[in-house]
Design a protein around this nucleic acid. Structure first.
Length: 284
DNA sequence: GTCCGGCTCC
DNA sequence: GGAGCCGGAC
């Protein structure tokens, strides 16, 4: 732990350091807070869509996708009723297509089990496919004004930079006392927005402190990877409407058995449906 | 080539 | 707890 840590044994020992941190974060927010479309709304559906899109995807790339996606699917019912093919088309450019499949399933669950309204409890949100602890906490805070543990990359950067010193391999458990001490329980939405903007700003002034998080995972190379082939294959099927293994092999320039394996894998994961060797985007 | 980023399934 | 999942900027 940092020698000047305001936390001892998991409790706040120095409120003034936390207060100074809060003041700095809020001053930065007042001066240079970022505008984002999902910060203009408290609609839980729009918040949920933004949080899912922001998983592993940067703000600049989410903004246009967010606008076109919500224009097409303004409610959970609209997404639940839409063909998966349309959903995946609108997802292109964001990456990690399985998020789109999960979000459509989540919309179905919201329609069926929650009367079409995004649930307002952490537990019910967490039960939705593609919604983990952070996304659920984000919806609770940003849509419903309920404070919770929302520790993502910018938040990690802010606390590691400010309170952890030069240590590596920092766990979220270590950050949590600072997070809890600094959290504005009356207005978590504004506070967390400010905190994220501060973290994002910090990353521009020092090497990304999030890389010192235990939870930071460096990606393997994308070029030539299975991820790349899967993505290209899904695009090819969307373009063709239907494909057999030989089509896929041609589109990807891979051997037919590999193309067949990739098609089967996408089918298993709910992207595609097979009928006698012909693969199309799944019905739902 | 390097960088950035949460959830799911094992 | 570790592996797998995308794409565009640079």
């Amino acid at each position: 732990m940092h020698p000047d840590s305001p936390i001892e044994d998991g409790h706040v020992a120095d409120y003034s350091a936390i207060e100074a941190f809060r003041a700095e974060v809020l001053a930065h927010y007042a001066d240079a807070g970022r505008t984002m479309p999902w910060r203009e709304t408290c609609d839980p559906w729009r918040i949920l869509v933004s949080e899912v899109m922001l998983q592993q995807t940067q703000v600049a790339r989410v903004i246009p996708a967010y606008e076109r996606f919500l224009a097409a699917f303004p409610t959970p019912d609209a997404l639940a009723a839409a063909p998966l093919e349309d959903v995946l088309r609108l997802w292109q450019g964001l990456g990690y297509n399985r998020r789109a499949v999960a979000l459509k399933r989540a919309a179905g669950s919201i329609a069926e089990e929650h009367g079409g309204s995004v649930p307002d409890s952490l537990e019910a949100l967490r039960a939705l496919p593609g919604v983990g602890p952070t996304t659920a906490a984000g919806v609770m805070a940003f849509a419903f004004g309920v404070p919770g543990v929302y520790i993502e990359t910018n938040v990690r950067a802010a606390f590691i930079h400010r309170f952890v010193g030069d240590l590596d391999d920092v766990s979220d458990r270590e950050i949590l006392p600072y997070y809890e001490a600094a959290l504005d329980r009356a207005d978590p939405r504004t506070w967390i927005h400010a905190l994220m903007d501060y973290g994002a700003h910090i990353k521009k002034t020092v090497p990304n402190p999030s890389r010192r998080s235990r939870h930071y995972a460096r990606q393997s190379a994308f070029e030539g990877s299975r991820r790349q082939k899967r993505a290209r294959l899904l695009r090819a099927v969307l373009a063709r409407g239907a494909a057999v293994a030989e089509d896929a092999a041609f589109d990807l320039d891979v051997p037919v058995p590999e193309a067949a394996e990739l098609l089967a894998l996408l089918a298993e994961e709910g992207f595609l449906a097979e009928d006698g060797g012909v693969f199309r985007v799944a019905d739902s």
